[in-house]
Amino acid sequence: MEKKDVPQDHGIFGQWHAICYVTDENGEYVRTTSSGWEPTNIANGIAWEFINEELAEVTEKVRKAELSPLAYYMKKNLMDVKMLSQYTGFASWRIKRHLKHRVFKNLDAATLQSYAAVFNITPEQMRDIP
């Protein structure tokens, strides 16, 4: 890649830039900044599209009370039961129970607080989904 061709396709980096190693007019390697490259923006977009599709499916189930709000926050934070178990210290089987609406409704404050702390929200926010 030559310095004159460094892409400046603003996208996933937001306000930031990435360093690229490119050759200058003398063929010498220099570092330069790039605000982004369209193929990378596209690939990243694909990943988020899939994630958001799955989140939409979970949201629908939570609204119908087929799953509890925990399922929403878990998905929103890109976690699965195993990862959530590692964060909370709760056994996987307990978390799976808490994904059921009727079990979640009756969760004690301490358990709710444990989940909320992982997701950086309040226990009040955990009781429902936006």
Partner: peptide, 28 residues
């Protein structure tokens, strides 16, 4: 297949490689 292909591009260019899956930094 599309999802995995996007993932391959991300591992090559998004995670901070200097371009070309670290190959350009190695050339430097």
């Amino acid at each position: 297949a599309i999802l995995y292909l996007g993932h391959a591009v991300r591992m090559q260019e998004e995670i901070g490689t200097g371009g070309g899956g670290f190959r350009l930094m190695y050339a430097a």
